[in-house]
Design a binder for these strands. Structure first.
Length: 882
RNA sequence: GGAGGAUUAGCUCAGCGGGAGAGCGCUUGCCUUACAAGCAAGAUGUCACAAGUUCAAUCCUUGUAUCCUCCACCA
């Protein structure tokens, strides 16, 4: 066999792009023709921007899951796609237009939408390129967009079906309204921010001129919409005035005083002006009392014809200033106090949200929420980590109807038409061209579009062809695992479950994996405005996709936020480099070798040891990944490959490779190849590029690693006893190395070492067998295993382990007093441990209550401490003789 | 106001009812022909504080403190 030269330095840029292309050309990510289906749908990124570190984390974890399953023989499908992100995308385009001095109305609906599609295409290109660079093994043949033809059909089907079931209705309602975006927002699209403001105490005179009362308000400009003043019925102060009439200052309208329990006794004056059209609480209160709601706002957020003329056309902030001036001038303003309170802002553009009375479409949620709750209670779905189940339940229990209409142009237009002649409303799966009632052709479609989440809540089945009865649905639905950050549990996850229960009769997935957020090293959320974000592409450019993926996975402890900076990714980078070089070493030794069959009867202790360790690593990875404990899996492969394989096994093999016979060399190389190719398979889900690149260079392998089988625990290669004994051997090596290091003995100075096992110690023969290897590890010129205690070690420096003692002949270098001091410290430490153990063992309660293993363990510890103390004492005596 | 999370080595974080861990950083010695992005040997901790449960608490319970999220919201 010839040597294969791997590039001397690991540089991911040399191969990552080429490898991804090979995967695509090899159809590596298409689901296998057979096997049990395993599906993940990717949370579709918005087409407004580029992917950030949170996406990198998310998609890395999904990719690890799907690659792991694919290699274990599942029929794995990962569905990618993007979301049209109604408000966000429309805002991007409107901002562009604003730079040109245009508004969307200047273009008209059709041209505006066309332009938005162009933006979508551009961002889409960037996003899919980024996903490819991260190594995401999604099936691009299954890629979907929330506004493509199939998904639009699904949206329409779901709307009309819900309408037919009486679950969609149109109603006048007080909604959150963003004047800038010009659209209603769902409750959870409003972000509250504590904002300094003022509380104004304002006098409202009695209609009969007999004085006045004082109300407190933060928004005096809404007083023109007041229809009452409310007090708490239990408020002794105001018992007698309920029912009396007041006159509104500045406009002269009469309003009554009513009693309602929602009014707080403590806050302000205990009197609240009721403005149903501009405050959610007042809206509820107004409904309870059958009061009119007077809308004061135009759709653009300015005041309308329901206010006195001088205030019309002003925005609320300007109007407030003027109203306050006028109140003061009229002697109505009692006092102004500073008052910080939470003000709602649009989650997309940050504008202050106004409660706004308008016609909107709603979905009744109660029934669906109950089904979604039941799905959790029945164990149909589960969250990882589990604590999110509470969050999910509490939200569903308190759910309110969902406002789904948005006054935007970019999105799924509501499938409702109005007959211009007879006023008939038509809700239809297909575009109607005639009124069913009056046969008029003058039909106009509802101008509004649907909330973005109204398409994404169908994502797990709409992407598989619903409402059609497709083979994909049969093969891949329901999906298994959903990976998402916690910030969209309400927006998206809960709604997907409700939609799926409603339309498919079952939950859309089984496991919901909630990841943490990626933060900077100060713990701040990465955001554009702070400029503290790290671009995944920068990380990939600098360290490679493998490095980024491995680092994120290593840090992703169940749902905890991860804090990273650019340097954090050195962890993964160094690991990839280590792998690269380990393989290079093997390939450099392939020259002239031939692969032979690997038979355990020819194994050395180290061979057995490394196979046992490999088995353990495989078992750990499988169980950790199945439980979504990503960091545990990453740590397992890291320590197996680096500490076990590179630090010990390869070092051990070097002996045979330089000194062994041809047969021994062939055998060693064959095992190395075997371990390496299994390691590549084991590690591939985590670091797919470098393992695939190496796979292509390893002898005796075929095809792509991405579609190779995952290694399995092999009981025939499990050697528990040898594994333990090699552990003791390593301990002996460490003792000598420590002695050498502590005493400042140069590495090239060969030492004489004697190992003296305790009588009957199980590792004695191993020490004898591996004398040469141990001597090399220790830098020993002469290593003797003293089985009968006959060797004179009185001139040697002693150290002890459980079961054996190691004597190093370093007389000339020993600093006797300080070594004795160390040994005394060792004795003191062990003495203390022994006391603790003795205390336990003499405690009758402990003996009576503790598990028998715990007692056995404690007894073993006692023996251990005693032995170590005995040895140390002996060693002090010995040192004193030196 | 409600809920959740965090508090472990200088930093970022694992872990766990019975002897405190990793990576990075730091110290010391090594260019040992795979890797100096490396090898070897080290140092560093009242596991936030207090009480309780337990034979046994860093781990479970309760409370306290500090920090961070989310939800709700009083004009």
């Amino acid at each position: 066999m010839k040597a294969v030269e791997l590039a001397k330095t690991y540089d991911p840029k040399d191969f990552e792009a080429r490898i991804y292309q090979a995967w695509e050309e090899g159809k590596a990510f298409s689901p296998a023709a057979e096997g049990k289906g395993f599906t993940i749908v990717m949370p579709p990124p918005n087409v407004t921007g580029i992917l950030h570190m949170g996406h990198a984390l998310n998609n890395t974890l999904q990719d690890i899951i799907i690659r792991h399953r694919r290699m274990r023989g599942w029929r794995a499908l990962w569905v990618p796609g993007t979301d049209h992100a109604g408000i966000a995308t429309q805002n991007v385009v409107e901002r562009q237009l604003a730079k040109e001095g245009l508004r969307r109305q200047d273009l008209g609906r059709e041209a505006f939408i066309k332009r938005t599609w162009e933006v979508k295409e551009r961002h889409h290109e960037i996003i899919v390129r980024q996903l490819r660079r991260m190594g995401c093994s999604c099936d691009w043949d299954h890629e979907r967009f929330t506004m493509d033809e199939g998904l639009s059909k699904a949206v329409r089907e779901s709307f009309v079906t819900l309408y037919e079931r009486g679950l969609v209705y149109k109603g006048q309602y007080l909604v959150n309204y963003c004047p800038k975006c010009g659209t209603a927002l769902a409750d959870d699209e409003v972000e509250y921010e504590n904002t300094p403001g003022k509380l104004y105490d304002v006098r409202y005179p009695y209609a009969d001129g007999s004085g006045y009362i004082t109300v407190a308000t933060t928004r005096p400009e809404t007083m023109f919409g007041d229809v009452a003043v409310a007090v708490n019925p239990a408020d002794e102060r105001y018992k007698d005035i309920v029912g009396r009439k007041l006159v509104l200052p500045l406009c002269g309208r009469e309003i009554p005083i009513i009693a309602d329990a929602f009014v707080s006794l403590e806050f302000g004056t205990g009197m609240v002006k009721i403005t149903p059209a501009h405050d959610p609480n007042d809206w509820e209160c107004g409904r309870r009392h059958g009061l009119e709601a007077i809308n004061l706002l135009n759709p653009d957020g300015t005041l309308n014809e329901n206010v006195p003329e001088k205030y019309r056309g002003l925005d609320p902030v300007a109007a407030r200033k003027l109203v306050v001036e006028d109140l003061e001038a009229g002697g109505y303003l009692v006092k102004v106090t500073d008052h910080a309170h939470d003000v709602g802002h649009c989650y997309r553009c940050g504008t202050i949200v106004e409660p706004y009375l308008s016609d909107q479409w709603f979905v009744s949620m109660r029934g669906m929420a109950d089904k979604a709750l039941k799905a959790l209670q029945d164990g149909e779905i589960s969250f990882h980590p589990k604590r999110w189940e509470n969050t999910y339940m509490r939200w569903l229990e308190g759910i309110r109807d969902w406002c789904i209409s948005r006054q935007l142009w970019w999105g799924h237009r509501i499938p409702v038409w109005y007959c211009q002649d007879c006023g008939e409303m038509i809700v239809s799966r297909t575009d109607p061209d005639e009124c069913p009632k009056c046969h008029s052709h003058r039909l106009e479609q509802d101008p509004d579009v649907l909330d973005t989440w109204f398409s994404s809540w169908l994502w797990p089945f709409s992407t598989l062809g619903w409402p059609g009865k497709t083979q994909d649905l049969a093969d891949f639905f329901p999906t298994q695992t959903l990976v998402s950050a916690y910030d969209i549990i309400f927006f998206w996850i809960s709604r997907m479950i409700m939609a799926s229960e409603e339309f498919m009769g079952k939950a859309p997935f089984k496991d919901i994996v909630i990841t943490g957020l990626v933060r900077d090293k100060q713990g701040r959320k990465m955001s554009k405005s702070l400029g503290n974000g790290i671009d995944p592409i920068d990380v990939i450019d600098q360290y490679g996709a493998d490095a980024m993926r491995f680092t994120l996975c290593y840090l992703a402890a169940q749902g905890q936020d991860v804090q990273v900076d650019m340097d954090s990714f050195k962890l993964g980078s160094r690991f990839a480099n280590k792998i690269w070089n380990a393989v290079r070493y093997l390939l450099l030794n392939m020259e002239g070798r031939k692969l032979v069959s690997i038979t355990p009867d020819k194994f050395s202790a180290f061979d057995k040891w490394i196979y046992s360790r490999l088995n353990k690593a495989i078992a750990t990875v499988d169980s950790a990944l199945d439980a979504y404990r990503f960091n545990e899996a990453a740590q397992a492969v890291h320590s197996f490959f680096w500490n076990d394989f590179c630090d010990w096994y390869v070092e051990a093999v070097k002996q045979r490779l330089t000194q062994g016979s041809d047969d021994e060399k062939d055998f060693s190389v064959s095992i190395m190849v075997d371990i390496l190719q299994k390691s590549m398979r084991l590690m591939h889900p985590f670091i797919p590029f470098v393992t695939e690149e190496i796979w292509g260079q390893l002898p005796g392998v075929e095809g792509l690693l991405a579609t190779a089988s995952y290694p399995e625990v092999d009981p025939a290669f499990d050697f528990k006893e040898d594994e333990e004994l090699v552990g003791a051997l390593q301990e002996a090596v460490r003792l000598v190395r420590a002695t050498r290091s502590q005493m400042g003995i140069a590495n090239d100075k060969k030492l004489r070492v004697v190992i003296r096992p305790a009588a009957g110690y199980a590792g004695s023969s191993l020490f004898e067998e591996e004398k040469g290897l141990m001597a090399s590890f220790m830098g020993a010129g002469e290593l003797t295993v003293d089985l009968d205690g006959s060797i004179d070690t009185s001139q040697a420096f002693p150290s002890s382990a459980l079961g054996f003692e190691v004597f190093t002949f370093v007389k000339e270098a020993v600093d006797v007093p300080s070594e004795i001091k160390k040994l005394e410290a060792t004795i003191a430490k062990n003495q203390k441990s022994l006391e603790g153990t003795m205390k336990k063992l003499s405690n009758e309660q402990f003996l009576a209550n503790a598990k028998s293993e715990a007692i056995e363990k404690e007894k073993a510890k006692k023996a251990e401490f005693e032995e170590l103390i005995r040895q140390a004492k002996e060693h002090i005596a010995q040192l004193e003789k030196l």
